[in-house]
Amino acid sequence: MAEYKGILVCGELANGKLGSITTELLGCGRRLADDLKEDLCCLLVGEAVGEPAKEAIAFGADKVYSVEDASLKDYEADSYMQVVEKLVKETSPRAIIMGQTFMGRDLAPRLAFRLGTSLATDCLDLSIDPNTKLLVQTRPVYGSNAQAVFTSDVIPQMVTVRSKAMSPLERDDSRTGEVIPFKVDIDASKVRTKTLETVMEEAVGLKLEDAPVIVAGGRGLGGPEPFQTTLKELADLLHGAVGASRPPADNGWVPEALHIGLTGKIVAPDVYFAIAISGASQHTAGCSGSKHIIAINKDPEANIFREAELGVVGKYEDVVPALTNKLKELLAG
């Protein structure tokens, strides 16, 4: 039987560069690999991965397996599975770490079941049990009302990690590592799905993930209009972005890209305004990392006031315009 050794991070690219989730996974992977005194490896798949491979080393990888193939530019489960399955069989990592991203959510469970191993998704914390060398996996459950610590004695160990849960290392271009080209002949007959069309929502203004201030609205806004007027005015004044809880996105009041929470985006701005949002745990899962949460809600019992630092009880129609006007005055003066 092969000896299982080392940590494998399945990296992701964003606009041809190393995605931020990958630097986070490498930061966490480095710590685990050091505890085990084993290697940290990173898989990068795409059209051209030369530059990102160097970045991955600068962010902590000892080895980068680079798979360059124009047909692998966009994630497709049945072709990516062939790549990871082959790499895992040939390199026998002790643990496989992916991001809780579109790709990780789609790929990790398939791989875990194919390998017959167990998987913990959306982990917030990972460590190595020094006695067993097994991964100790902490993940939120019950809509983030609690956290569960799991272990599994099946090898390889598999987890996905929530974005922004781990810190990347400082980039250090003097780090050394090896880039290993890895060849996979994709068997097209095993790719059962076919992408007919891809439609991107045009990005308007600041990306939520990068905004220092987020003005988020909920079902209590009653329709699309306040997002474009009342909330946008406040967001523009503070050079921030407008976000939403799930119902406004489900109802088509705002684009899906603005949906924040367990099943939406995870954000951590300096200031997060939650306006007419009740504060369900599945929503606050996506914004609890914010430095300051400010809640405006007509219901004094709303759960969001348990999460917030400052709060106003009142109808947003009354509170928010007055807040914006006063802030305008203060910022001008």
């Binding site: 200031v271 348990r306 400052l310 106003v312 009354d318 203060l330």
Partner: peptide, 25 residues
């Protein structure tokens, strides 16, 4: 969770909104 929310008051909701601006500042 520490969960200590400071509630900003005012005679009217609008005044509370303005007071929130002052508090934020």
């Amino acid at each position: 969770k520490e969960g200590k929310c400071e509630m900003i008051e005012g005679d009217t909701p609008a005044e509370a909104g303005a007071n929130l601006a002052l508090r934020l500042r």
